[in-house]
Design a binder for these strands. Structure first.
Lengths: 215, 215
DNA sequence: GTCTATAAATCGATAGAC
DNA sequence: GTCTATCGATTTATAGAC
């Protein structure tokens, strides 16, 4: 958006938002090393030093992009689940449905997470902390769901959290490829077995199971 | 390995192997765009034009690396399962155990697959074909296992194939981070439920299930 | 807040000697 | 098969005018 108008002066926050949006797209497509500041600047319609006026370095730019998107996500999920704290299944299904509407953002995180394995990558520590945090939050929710009888108590919460995060990451990758897999459908079916099994176990009590074997 | 000896002349195939090894490490660490030919050349102990004598371009180099490693993998798996065709569970467990011994290679594929989402990436078509092929092969094996009663027939083979590939990819990513997750342990436990469930279903016949709820 | 100009380094790739 | 030399383009970042 926005045709190039040379030297047009914009309010600080507005220009910053433009830059963050353009940078997110660029980093998603070509990664950190494959993206030049000139790429981003051109998308915004600003000169490359003009871009560096708002973010002091390329490293600062990608970190700002990642943190801004995380904060945006947190706001969205807080809004959807205002009062009640949702079950793990509901939480992940809503998140996946949201992600299905923004492939660029999913690609940004897929690419950046992989790149960040390099200790010299600017987002290396960011992603290490992020994965620890996500697993912790998810494990805590799993434990709550287990107490409510929504998830089979045989699962170790931390293990199931790692598995579900892995599944989502992997499905996102294949969903971004061609032909795309049915990311949300596959996740939903996997999650349905978690709750269905616990429902059977909790509802029928112990001693005799349902007809459905397993997943 | 190999301390730098200027101008040392090596046989074609040997030098090519050196280059492929060094390039695999470099691309794994910093990705395609983040790796320079000079990086790779220095690791090998050769000049940058000397490197380009063996591979005509950077693009040709990364493609050669990826194809060579795929072929190596195929040879290894053929060797392990010489006569019998293994079950899906055995096949994936062996593959995961092998991968656990070579984090650099796992990282190469994790990073390259994510980068390759960009249509302009040299390995874009390579990875699209690769994922299609892997899912097909895995789905065919799943179908065979289902006929043998090793895997619950409720699963759509193509769907389970996508899910297992996703799980492995995602676990690899978390295994490469710190703290690392127990990649093979988590995979094994997930796979155990696939076979245990079918075992129960097949062994006890239909109509009444076991005590174990689900996964 | 945005620009032009430019520094200083590095990139992939080629030419040609040995 | 390997090198030195080099081209031409691109990179991040800074200096300073407006």
């Amino acid at each position: 958006m926005a045709e190039r108008i040379e030297g047009l002066r914009l309010p600080r926050t507005q220009r910053r938002q433009q830059i963050l949006t353009a940078a997110a797209q660029a980093f998603a497509e070509t990664g950190f090393h494959g993206t030049s500041l000139a790429d981003v600047a051109t998308r915004v319609g600003v000169s490359q030093p003009g871009l560096l006026h708002h973010f002091p370095s390329k490293q600062a730019l990608i970190l700002a992009v990642l943190e801004e998107r995380d904060a945006e996500d947190a706001r969205y999920l807080d809004e959807v689940f205002q009062q009640a704290d949702p079950s793990v299944v509901d939480w992940l299904v809503v998140l996946c449905a949201k992600n299905a509407q923004r492939p660029e953002l999913v690609q940004l995180y897929t690419v950046a997470a992989a790149e960040s394995l390099d200790p010299a990558h600017p987002a290396h520590e960011f992603f290490q902390r992020r994965y620890q945090r996500i697993r912790q939050v998810l494990a805590a929710r799993i434990e709550l769901d287990q107490q409510k009888g929504l998830i089979d108590p045989v699962h170790v919460p931390e293990d199931l959290a790692s598995e579900l995060v892995a599944l989502m990451d992997g499905l996102q990758l294949q969903w971004l490829m061609r032909p795309p897999v049915d990311m949300c459908g596959l996740l939903r079916r996997r999650l349905a077995r978690l709750s269905a099994a616990a429902g059977v176990a909790a509802g029928v009590a112990a001693g005799h199971g349902g007809d459905r074997s397993d997943d």
